[in-house]
Design a protein around this nucleic acid. Sequence first.
RNA 1: GCGGCAGUAGCUCAGCUGGAUAGAGCAGCGGACUUCUAAUCCGCAGGUCGGGGGUUCGAGUCCUCCCUGCCGCGCCA
Length: 548
Amino acid sequence: MKSAVVSLVEKALKAAQAEGSLPEVKVQINIEYPDKKYGDYATNVAFLLAKQARKNPREVAEIIAHHIKDPFVASVDVAEPGFINLRMKESWWNSIIEQILRDKEHFGDCNLGNGKKVQVEFVSANPTGPLHIGHGRGAAVGDSLCRILQKAGFAVEREYYINDAGRQIRMLGESIWARCKELKGEEVKFPEDGYRGNYVIELAKEALQKFPDILNMPKEKAVERLAEWGKDKLLEKIINDLKSFNVEFDSFFSEKSLHQEGKIEEALKVLKEKGYIYEKDGALWFKSTELGDEKDRVVVRTNGEPTYFAADIAYHRDKMKRGYYLCINVWGADHHGYIPRVKAAIKAMGYDPEKLKVLLIQMVSLLRDGKPVSMSKREGEIIPLRWLIDEVGKDAARFIFLTRKCDSHLDFDIEVAKRQTEENPVFYVQYAHARICSIKRIAEERNISLNPHQSDLSLLKEEEEKEIIRKLSQFPDIVEASARNLEPHRITYYLTDLASLFHSYYNRFRVLVEDKALRNARFALCEATRIVIKEGLRLLGVSAPEEM
RNA sequence: GCGGCAGUAGCUCAGCUGGAUAGAGCAGCGGACUUCUAAUCCGCAGGUCGGGGGUUCGAGUCCUCCCUGCCGCGCCA
């Protein structure tokens, strides 16, 4: 609820300026949560104005503090060296509970986005194999980010870029083809960079059933057909896996379509017209160095084929033309070196590179009881996301993927995630939700009346109760900060904190007490907590079970 | 070599886009279930925020220089 406090301080500042005690300078009013002993809210405006007001911060603070008048404010203090500390009345805190009970899951919605269109492109894994753990983290971050941005008032579009063209798809076809041969007992040299995962063998078995005469066809033709068919099968599997991970997309963008519709040529033509294309060694190069890249990049190979990068230029041109307020790409951190050239291309085509934000997702190290699980790519031995979901569950996987800043390494311990104990942060939060549901259930069973909406919240006198309310009041700020900084992990931390406060409270106090008025008041607090936990979990794509 | 990211408690990590005495979980030790779910709670301990310099009322946070680790640096995608 910082925004309400901001406007309150703003009003005081304007009043002070109007009477001439402070100069008319614009400042950003910043509200913080100070240590409890100082107050409920604090602001540092005085420091920001001190220089131009030619007064010391303390004096400025006194002037502003003097003008703060609001029915919700209990006291205003100025502390050295110039902080203004506010303490709010009980009615302020109670109104927050009322607001949560009234707004329900809409509590924390904000208008940061103001309906502006934002596109988030994530996962975009090649349809040449199943999703692995790394994709899972990207999926969790991307999807959660979308949910948060939506709550913050953006019109979000989720897109998956399908790399369905080029060498790797052909290689998929060759790999399946080779496996078909082997299944028929024929000696065949498996392609050097082929896909060696078991799923290729499965595909080959299926292909032999579906296309009985596939091996009688000329190799080129067979490979092409198998590539096309295999790619579709794998994409279907990817989409299914994502669905079980609670992730769905609004649109799929095909790289192949860029080739087919001449979009690549178009994009390159634009670059050429602007003078960013030159020929060298029989290839066409993009002068990305002029726009901040380390070296120039080939866009059309000697053999006349456009590079992957050329397609990506066309893809980003298409995105830019679609007129988003912001495009967010969620990439694996190993692609970081790729950012400058894409930004260079965007700039070269006359768009603002700031329209593109790239989120880099760091590697996930898989552990089992603290020991690393080998993830060697040898023999295509990757750990599939599907396996992880089956092993630890969708909720645990998503939550744990979101327990770190996305650009930090993540240690994912499968045994801890599976363990249904205190070590597991997912259950900790879900349990708090379930406990509140349980209170309600018990009350119904025992015919105990509960009416959170008609409760006298002033009965909530305990320090633990006030702590919870303070925390609840921060939810909108956390949502906004997560959206502003594109950092879903803030929600995860917030929920853990909130759950912790609730568990403490639950252990120390009873909700279903004899005193009806107190019972209702406490239950109102619980309901508000439940609503916020459930909504927070929703933002993470994690379920909020009513019993566990 | 160049570039990106990181370095905070024994371990894994937060730290609100510069704020007041740097936090949490785990691991360790000791306690709490005839009560609304013990998947929980309560208490104890733990620090040169990698190092130096700088910017200012104020730096874990910003600038600079070192040290260390991970990762990128294809006419691969």
